[in-house]
């Protein structure tokens, strides 16, 4: 690998990290889907297959201490902060080795030690919460940025608009990232939104720049993230970024996505973020052997995680009554 060709404003190391992260998210989520087909993943799950460049780009651009706020479609954002695959798959498989020992499930992945401050399953709820974390940073003079990910459907709920206005008037160090995958659940977002770009076309209402990026290009995502984080750390306030992308699977595991017009998925698969990024790295002079090694390492990591999860016990019943209150228990009376 020649560093001269592969490094511009993004270093070779960072580019390989972007590649590795995207492959990791893809392999882990593909495995989650396979395990679901084997009836080993219980409950619901919402995959980000095809959207990995957004999670990878924003996470790789973060510093330690920056905070991620995710939605129920949060596996990718959680993994991108370095949470072990085993912890995530274990939670999806209702095992005791899961991130929350099975108490949260797929839609609530949280790892405070990695800066993943929660995955929120009520649309819009976490935008104000991310504002609060950013308010704390501003209040204390901390340098961390709160980054809040959500889908296009979220732009039509009240909390989105309350949070945008709130972040703007208080100039909070928060970055709002709309992953526009063209569908709110089963309905085209264009059918239910007054403007073409559900997030970016609302930015002006809150005095913010209109930012639309190719969410399938990890380099473009990373550059955008860096700019937004710098702005937040400078004290210049929030950003709202609309990243265009496409999910390869349905809304949730229950959805075969038959509502999509013929050929749409195929045309987006040609723009698969991982395929495109691999091609770019090869063009920039990274050897195929280096990429193949990364691919194999990730495959091994996911396989080892799967084996560990299959062998892990179910959570014990005694945790049903823990951590309702801060004393560790659930007592509501004497």
């Amino acid at each position: 690998m020649s560093k001269k060709t592969v490094t511009d404003d993004i270093s070779a190391e960072v580019r390989l990290e972007l590649y590795r992260t995207q492959v990791r998210l893809r392999e882990a989520e593909q495995r989650a889907f396979d395990l679901f087909l084997q009836n080993l993943v219980k409950g619901t799950s919402h995959l980000s297959l095809g959207q990995e460049a957004i999670a990878a780009g924003f996470a790789v651009a973060m510093q330690k201490g920056d905070l991620s706020f995710c939605t129920y479609r949060g596996h990718a954002h959680t993994l991108a902060r370095g949470v072990p695959v085993e912890k995530v798959l274990g939670e999806l498989m209702s095992r005791d080795n899961g991130l929350m020992r099975g108490k949260g499930g797929s839609m609530h992945l949280t790892s405070v030690e990695h800066g993943v401050m929660g995955s929120y399953a009520i649309i819009g709820a976490h935008l104000p919460i991310a504002c609060g974390a950013a308010w704390r940073a501003q209040y204390r003079g901390d340098s961390d940025v709160s980054v809040c990910f959500f889908g296009d459907g979220t732009t039509n709920i009240g909390a989105f608009h309350e949070a945008l206005n709130f972040a703007a008037i208080w100039k909070l160090p928060v970055v709002f990232v709309c992953e526009n995958n063209l569908y709110m659940e089963y309905t085209p977002i264009a059918d239910v939104t007054a403007v073409e770009h559900p997030a970016a076309d609302r930015a002006a209402a809150y005095g913010l720049e209109r930012i639309i990026i190719d969410g399938n290009d990890a380099d473009e995502v990373l550059r955008t993230a860096r700019k937004a984080y710098e702005r937040a750390r400078r004290g210049d306030g929030p950003s709202l970024i609309e990243a265009m992308t496409y999910r390869h699977s349905g809304h949730s595991r229950a959805d075969p996505a038959k509502y999509r017009p013929e050929g749409e998925l195929e045309s987006w698969k040609k723009r698969d973020p991982i395929k495109m990024y691999r091609a770019r790295l090869l063009k920039l002079g990274v050897s195929e052997a280096v990429l193949n090694t990364i691919d194999q390492e990730i495959k091994d990591e996911v396989e080892a995680a799967t084996v560990a999860c299959k062998a892990a016990p179910a959570p014990s019943a005694d945790i049903i009554f823990t951590d309702v209150y801060a004393d560790g228990g659930w007592a509501w009376r004497n």
């Binding site: 709820a125 935008l127 104000p128 919460i129 609060g132 974390a133 704390r136 309350e162 206005n165």
Partner: peptide, 25 residues
């Protein structure tokens, strides 16, 4: 800095309180 007026945005008020509480205030 410590006593702060908000807009009429009850979700923003409570969400902000929660995010601040989660991170140390």
């Amino acid at each position: 800095r410590r006593v702060r007026d908000t807009p009429i945005s009850e979700q923003a008020i409570l969400g902000a309180a929660m995010g601040a509480a989660m991170t140390g205030l």
